[in-house]
Amino acid sequence: MIPVTRRKVLLGCALAALLALSPIALAGEVVVTGAKSSLNALDRDQVRDLFLGHMSTLPTGRNATLVDQPQSSPLRDEFYLKVANKSAAQARALWAKLYFTGRGVPPREGLDSADVKRIVNSTPDAIGYIEESALDSSVKVIFVVK
């Protein structure tokens, strides 16, 4: 039998290894906009309502252009789960309803975080989400996903 203290150490190591293999859980996500945008911050409800299509305008009064991670990205699942308590598929179903009925335009899809940053930086009023470790000077953080 493994002593309790040793079991705790092994369990800790196993969890650490698991987390190390799961960069999303460690990296965290941030919602970003272009570095030159006049938008400085959003709260969780605003981010949720924008990415679920409940609202389309930013606090600046201008229409938002939303940018998603690709469908295959675990960042996308993590983002919708943490911000809206929904799966990426549920969010997609909501957007399908809005798009095919003329009530909204779904988020554009970036190829990866670098592409999301490129679109956000070059498109006025665009916001997207990336892993915190991908941050650089081309974008600024307007919400930290927790």
Binding site: R92, A96, K97
Partner: peptide
């Protein structure tokens, strides 16, 4: 356009929704 008689009228053809 779709006649909005019901909650799901707009999306009634979109099975995924």
């Amino acid at each position: 356009q779709r006649l909005p008689m019901f909650y799901y009228s707009d999306s009634q053809d979109i099975g995924f929704a």
